[in-house]
Design a protein around this nucleic acid. Sequence first.
DNA 1: GAACGACTCTGTATCGATTTAGTTAGCCTT
DNA 2: AAGGCTAACTAAATCGATACAGAGTCGTTC
Lengths: 350, 350
Amino acid sequence: MSSPRRITLKELAAELGVSTASVSNAFNRPDQLSPALRERILGEAKRLGYRGPDAKARSLRTGRSRIIAVVLAESLTYSLNDAVASELLSGIAEVLDAHGHTLLLLSGRQHASQAPGSASIADGFIAYGLLPPTLMVSADLPAQRPLVAVDFSPEGYPAVHIDNEPASHMIARHALRTPPRRPAIVSLRLTAEPCNGRVTQAHTQLPPEQTITRSRLAGFHRALEERGFTPSAVPIWNIEENTFEVCAPVIAEILDLPDEERPDLLLCMSDRIALTALTLAEQRGIRVPEDLRITGFDGIAEGQYRAPRLTTVRQDSVEKGRIAARMILGLEPAEPRLLHTALMIGDSCP
Amino acid sequence: MSSPRRITLKELAAELGVSTASVSNAFNRPDQLSPALRERILGEAKRLGYRGPDAKARSLRTGRSRIIAVVLAESLTYSLNDAVASELLSGIAEVLDAHGHTLLLLSGRQHASQAPGSASIADGFIAYGLLPPTLMVSADLPAQRPLVAVDFSPEGYPAVHIDNEPASHMIARHALRTPPRRPAIVSLRLTAEPCNGRVTQAHTQLPPEQTITRSRLAGFHRALEERGFTPSAVPIWNIEENTFEVCAPVIAEILDLPDEERPDLLLCMSDRIALTALTLAEQRGIRVPEDLRITGFDGIAEGQYRAPRLTTVRQDSVEKGRIAARMILGLEPAEPRLLHTALMIGDSCP
DNA sequence: GAACGACTCTGTATCGATTTAGTTAGCCTT
DNA sequence: AAGGCTAACTAAATCGATACAGAGTCGTTC
């Protein structure tokens, strides 16, 4: 336990009989001293086991830590297992790595309760999908520090988005080309109050915060209307968390409806929902796409590598992450960006 | 750009006419000052927009940052999309969160090149699956700082492991109960030189570093021997990266062999490999398990939610992460731990 | 009524670096 | 030979907090 305490720059300087400035320069600005001295310093440093300037002290002095924090709306546990969030993080990590920065993971939830915010270490923040109320709580994160938002739009900050409404309009339009008898929508976190199941009249007052979900719903509704359906007559089921475990019971409820009530088209707001539907339909001997057509949203890998291949809208979450990271590093102008999506026609809804 | 610079603790103290010590105590040790003063300080802090002590300065002074770094063998981009690594991270994040710590993500690869290590910020390190050579490079990470290893065993550090050899022996034994005509092994990173495909004689000298892979192979071989097979006669294909994209061509090579050479049992070293085999077999009309039996390893969710359900060995990666995190936080003794695994018999190899 | 302890609060050294302004020495110019 | 430059190096202030030792006040206790 009595570790031989790490040697400091000052001690190293004393040992060598040079100033601390020179040692610092040896590590950071080689052009500021003679190669000979630099060599001598680096050599002695290695000999004494000095690992280079301490990051804590350096970041205090310089004001920069080369750390970017990503604040995730959901718990880290959830986010790390969600394909879309993982892809986003991948994109962010890729760019940060390439520019010598590191990634600190914060959860919007955790953070609120967290005693003394270790957040002020970060040079900048990338916030993902925070809801306005959560944002308020954690808004004091970026005390004058740069913040880039992904998948939501806090006022006054640059944001990276996809075109949710046109995208879902596009896929719904495709699905409705073959007119379904009973279309249905399976939505993600649409209601103000948590509700895992059929959305009833009681939930009609949709909260305005859920911008993504609402935009996607709007796209579905527009397409339905264009094809002669009455949007309000199309049933909506709501899913509280985008995981198999939470989706499964709701999907089961839908698939186990009596034949004459069971939908023959599911417009799902995420691939995870659609994949769950695919799995449960298979288990029940419901044929996809003959008896039931299913569309997803996101374009995650899992949906493309399985049979039947999922019909979905691909959004490039990795690229979204890259852009956000480049913005926060100042490598590209931090201004609102809207990424486009692509319809991917698979076998689940040809 | 001329941000009104964040106010400091000292300025706040001056404003209030109290000492900096009191302000610090107001935030950190409420019992050290009267409730009245504390109230006054906190009030004024809020009024002036003071967010609480700066993390950089605090961590320099106290020597603790409440940040734990996870060093991943692979690139972050890969790790974030790998189910096993994600689960591990989930487990780690869960425990760290619960104890007010945050997670810094470092890649073993990135780190080597990274200019000035921002690593010395961390209070401790959890290293995952580093190969000895890589570890050497990054060994100077934990300058006298605690380190817990996961899935490998650097000398002198506590490590969390699973029982790889018994586990793969167990599943191979199960698979061989129904004697296959032509068993084959699909391995992960087994060879010294990168080799994506059939392992030939040239690769016989297996490097000793790949402890996990070697242990799993040993388990397979022991079971094969017990069932009367000559291990050296069982063909091995090697996969360089545990992703669909890298697996697919190798699996295709196997499945496209002429009927009389094609294996009828694949012992795969990961679920990802096994799932790829499942998908490609399906595409080719090869029936699983009738024509081809497949076993995996890991027990990732994706394999359990699809049909046919994967026969595999479940390792609790989340728990592995939790344990590593608790060790690094000193919540449980940092001593070698071996987790047990469970055979999960699915439909891919009944 | 002196001594003691319990509460509050303050002064200041310190954590380990970076960086500005400045000093010295040596060389070149004219 | 004087002035001007540059290169190489240093002294010391500073980043923003924490925590120790001590100072002052006030109520108890013997």
